[in-house]
C-alpha cells in the first residue's frame, strides 16, 4: 500500500482518472441538455459506438485527427436527427426508442468494422497537448495540463453548458419545456423545436465522446464503449441534471477506476479482491444515485412526449 502513496503514483492516478472521465463527461453533458428539455435518450451507448467507429475509420483512411473529430460529432448529429424524428414526430416511447438506437449502433458498427476493416489495425492516437508554462508546474502540470485536446474540450464544455442552460434564452426554453411543456407552448415556445436542438446537441456530444475514446485508444473493436454510454446516463442523475455535478460524478468515477487500476498494478489488491474492486466505481455511483434521488427531483416532463393536439 505504501507504494501507492508516493507522489508520482498519485499524480499518475489522478491524470489517469481525468483521462478515463472524459468520454463519460462528454456524453453525460449532452444527455444533461437533453434531459433538461424532457428527453431521455437511452441510445447514448449506440451513438458513442457510431462516433467511435467513424473517428477510427476516418483516421485509418485519412490520417486526419481533426476530420475524425468533426465527423464523429457529425455522425452523432445525424443519429440525433433520427432520434428526434422517432420521438418528436412519431411520438414513440423514449425508453424503447433509445434501446433501438443502442442496438442499431452496436450492430452497424460491428458490421461495418468487420466488412471495412477486419483485423483491428492501430491508428495514431490523439497525442498530448502540453499547455505552455502550466504543464511545467510540478505534479499539477502532469495532472491537469498534459492531456489530449478532447480532454480540455470536455472540461471547458462544463461552464459552457452551464451558461447556456442557466443564462441564455435558449436555456430558459430548455428548462421550460422540460418542466411544463404546455405552459411553454402557450407562451410561444416551440417545444418540439427546442427538444430537437437539445437532441442534436446531446447526440453530437455522444458521438464526440465515442470519437474521443477511439482516438485516445488508437484502436476500435466490437462494443468498444463497453457500457460507458449507460454509465454516462447514470451520471446525469448522479449530477442532479447540473453540469458541474455531472463533472464531479464523471471525475469520481474516473478517479476511483484509476485508483483500482493502480492498486491492481502495484499488487495491493489481488485475487478475489481484484474482482470486487472492479465493481467499486459502479457501486459507488449507485450509492450516490440513491442519496441524490431522495433529495432532487428530475425534470417534471422527463420522458413525457408533447402532443399539442392531445
Amino acid at each position: 500500500m505504501s507504494d501507492f502513496f508516493t507522489m508520482s503514483v498519485i499524480v499518475a492516478t489522478l491524470a489517469s482518472g481525468i483521462r478515463l472521465a472524459t468520454p463519460f463527461l462528454l456524453a453525460a453533458l449532452g444527455e444533461t441538455v437533453g434531459q433538461r428539455s424532457g428527453v431521455l435518450n437511452l441510445g447514448v451507448e449506440g451513438v458513442m459506438l457510431i462516433g467511435a467507429f467513424v473517428a477510427y475509420y476516418t483516421t485509418l483512411k485519412t490520417d486526419s485527427t481533426a476530420l475524425s473529430i468533426f465527423l464523429s460529432l457529425a455522425a452523432g448529429v445525424v443519429m440525433g436527427l433520427l432520434y428526434a424524428f422517432i420521438t418528436l414526430v412519431m411520438h414513440a416511447e423514449q425508453g424503447i426508442s433509445g434501446i433501438g438506437i443502442y442496438l442499431f449502433g452496436l450492430g452497424i458498427t460491428d458490421l461495418l468494422f468487420q466488412k471495412q476493416v477486419g483485423t483491428p489495425l492501430p491508428i495514431g492516437g490523439l497525442g498530448t497537448v502540453e499547455i505552455p508554462l502550466l504543464a511545467d508546474i510540478p505534479w499539477i502540470g502532469e495532472v491537469f495540463f498534459q492531456h489530449s485536446v478532447l480532454v480540455y474540450t470536455a472540461f471547458l464544455l462544463v461552464p459552457v453548458v452551464w451558461f447556456v442552460i442557466n443564462r441564455t434564452t435558449f436555456g430558459l426554453n430548455i428548462r421550460a419545456v422540460g418542466e411544463t411543456p404546455e405552459a411553454a407552448d402557450t407562451l410561444g415556445v416551440s417545444v418540439n423545436l427546442t427538444r430537437t436542438w437539445t437532441i442534436l446537441i446531446g447526440n453530437g456530444l455522444a458521438g464526440l465522446a465515442g470519437g474521443a475514446l477511439a482516438l485516445e485508444l488508437g484502436i476500435f473493436q466490437q462494443n468498444l464503449t463497453s457500457g460507458r454510454g449507460f454509465i454516462a446516463i447514470a451520471l446525469v442523475y448522479f449530477g442532479a441534471w447540473r453540469p458541474v455535478g455531472v463533472m464531479f460524478g464523471a471525475l469520481l468515477f474516473g478517479i476511483v477506476s484509476a485508483t483500482v487500476n493502480q492498486w491492481k498494478t502495484l499488487g495491493i489488491i489481488e485475487g478475489a479482491a481484484s474482482s470486487l474492486a472492479s465493481m467499486a466505481p459502479a457501486v459507488l455511483t449507485i450509492v450516490v444515485l440513491v442519496l441524490v434521488s431522495r433529495r432532487i427531483d428530475p425534470p417534471s416532463a422527463l420522458t413525457r412526449p408533447f402532443d399539442r393536439s392531445a
Binding site: V9, E216, L217, A258, N261, K264, G267, S274
Partner: peptide
C-alpha cells in the same frame, strides 16, 4: 513482474489504462 487482471475480456479502454499504469510504474 506486475500483473493487472482487469476482470474483463472485452474492455479495451481498461486494458489500455492498465498498460499506461504499468508504464507509469
Amino acid at each position: 513482474v506486475n500483473v493487472n487482471w482487469i476482470e474483463s475480456f472485452s474492455d479495451v479502454a481498461l486494458a489500455a489504462e492498465a498498460a499506461t499504469s504499468h508504464i507509469s510504474n
